[in-house]
Design a protein around this nucleic acid. Structure first.
Lengths: 338, 338
DNA sequence: TCCCGTTGTCGATACGCATCGACAACGGGA
DNA sequence: TCCCGTTGTCGATGCGTATCGACAACGGGA
């Protein structure tokens, strides 16, 4: 193993000078710097992560707690992970992956053993038992999702209430006389993931504001069968020109198919708006009008906040909750604008 | 921060004794052990990862290189990651996530900085430029996928040639007079991911063995449009009773839909076999007869080999290439057995 | 009784780096 | 000419743990 001492010997300087060249924390003459850099290159020196962490109290690692256990919505998880990993690498850090089924113990482990400098938690429940544990840790924790009580932790998420309002407002503008919301599997509802309620509340508020009756179909069993049943119920309650909202990525395609199978073509005699990524919306035929989940924006904003928290020079963000504005894209499953 | 020295003081022993209690590398009297364990509990002591890594030359971390860059097949990636993370935790290690777009540099970084004890690489190309780099590292590397030349590295993967043979043999047994293979997007073919060719070779061999003419449709554009075109071509070449094989998870559902749209119902006048996970196969209606990708089995086997390589006491596996036997499940898209 | 092997514990050291205080060299102003 | 501030480098130390050698206590066999 090549150490900074080896580099120092080759460059004819002391080990501490090598360290200062790498960190830039003290001024170094151009000549010395060049010699050191040449030696680093020649020996292909790379600092030992453990030693660096021990000496500097910084691991350059971000812990990422992802929902993997059964019952977690893993659809659309990848864009989050991918974006987070990218942002973290841009800051010359790395990602340590921890699955949510470790629960609070996982958080304690990450912080207690100094495995990472900060933690990102996804899939936050409304009353998540991990929140108090996370808030008590000695390292920054950032939530992707908004619990009822964030205990002072920073949260980033899509503005789900706004997403609900946008979807319903669009349906109202298209002249629908009834809004039907096709919800989530019992499992998800039970876990009380925050966005379910937040979206529904926004949708309900908008429906009331527009004087539209609205009906919620829930729980919806996962898979084809559940979608079929949900669509049956939706069509029963939906009146002549129902506007259907599906705030559930996994259900969008099956619901669309179930409607087509019944001879109801979204975009002609009814409208369908999905809450899903653009990728999912564009994958089906006809392409689904959607309110985007914007996983990349959400992740990026979360990482910005995270690295601000890690930088002692900069002050923490004034606002704890950072909501990303969703985007509605009109495609083929909504009526043409009148 | 609580250190092992604090634990030692509370327990009235020396720091080294605490260390030996935790590692079990020297015999400790029951009385002393209990005192130390009580102190650990009382102080909620957790060893510092950096210090431990520095002293022991073991990080207890496994590097996982996942395909995230554009053009990577991220469908079905999650079960791999999930299973790997689980196995790694079972061995009291952690997972450091690295994206493939860092290329060889990512590997050098992981090993050079001693960020992890071993590396798992996914999404291996037939002539992957990372292989020689990986083989030269000082730490074990295991491949999920089989390159043309593994340079002495252990590989674990599904037995794709066998999968191809199984699919074609099934079609032959069902009395089809022609086999059509609907392939991958140009992007994937260009990247020369090993399993594409390996599956096709197996399928071709089986077709020849059964005296069946076979035709390959490739490249297939991703999404609905590509599936439509591919199905058109397949039906043109497929004769009266074509047996269609789709060794591409993402294309299974669109191809099925395109067939249905054309009034051709798989399971009645033709057969469709997908190469995909059971989850994908069961999600569509009708459920697709499939050859399973077995991501969990593959991951598990890879982790077993990995930890064997990490354990100096155990000898490395005799066989470098470990192929998992696929499983064919008959569902609704193949003709009933005659 | 004496000797030696075993068991259990301790002190000391090394791991590789970051950082602090010290200080030599140098230059500009009085 | 002398003094002092600045710049650049070095030596020493500490981070928290694992591990090695030493050794005391103990017991069994000759």
């Amino acid at each position: 193993m090549v150490t900074s001492r080896d580099v120092a010997r080759v460059a004819g300087v002391s080990q501490s000078t090598v360290s200062y060249v790498m960190s830039g924390r003290r001024s170094i003459s151009a000549k010395t710097r060049q010699r050191v850099e040449a030696a680093i290159e020649q020996l292909t020196y790379q600092p030992n992560a453990g030693a660096r962490a021990l000496a500097s109290q910084r691991t350059q690692v971000i812990g990422l707690v992802v929902p993997f256990g059964p019952g977690a919505d893993t659809t659309g998880l990848l864009p989050f992970i991918e974006t987070i990993a990218g942002c973290v690498r841009d800051e010359d850090h790395d990602v340590l992956l921890v699955t949510a089924n470790e629960g609070s113990a996982g958080l304690s482990r990450l912080a207690g053993r100094s495995l990472c400098d900060a933690i990102v938690m996804m899939d936050i429940e409304a009353d998540d038992p991990r929140i108090p544990v996370a808030a008590a840790l000695q390292i920054p924790v950032i939530l992707i999702g908004v619990p009822d009580d964030s205990a002072g932790l920073c949260c980033v998420d899509l503005d789900f209430p706004l997403a609900g309002r946008m979807a319903v407002a669009e349906l109202a503008a298209l002249g629908h006389d009834q809004v039907v919301l096709i919800g989530h599997p019992a499992e998800v509802v039970e876990r009380d993931i925050n966005f379910v309620r937040r979206f529904q509340r926004g949708a309900a508020a908008a429906a009331a504001a527009h004087g539209l009756p609205h009906h919620v179909v829930a729980p919806v069993a996962p898979g084809r069968a559940g979608a079929e049943a949900a669509v049956e119920e939706a069509l029963r309650h939906g009146g002549e020109r129902p506007g259907i909202v599906v705030p559930n990525s996994q259900a969008v395609q099956p619901v669309l198919q179930a409607l087509l199978d019944r001879g109801r073509t979204p975009g002609r005699d009814l409208s369908l708006i999905g809450l899903c990524t653009d990728t999912v919306a564009e994958a089906s035929t006809p392409a689904v009008t959607n309110v985007s989940l914007e996983p990349r924006d959400v992740s990026r904003r979360a990482m910005q906040t995270l690295f601000r928290l890690l930088d002692r020079r900069r002050e923490p963000p004034a606002e704890l909750v950072d909501l990303v504005v969703p985007r509605l894209t009109r495609r083929q499953t909504t009526l043409p604008a009148t």
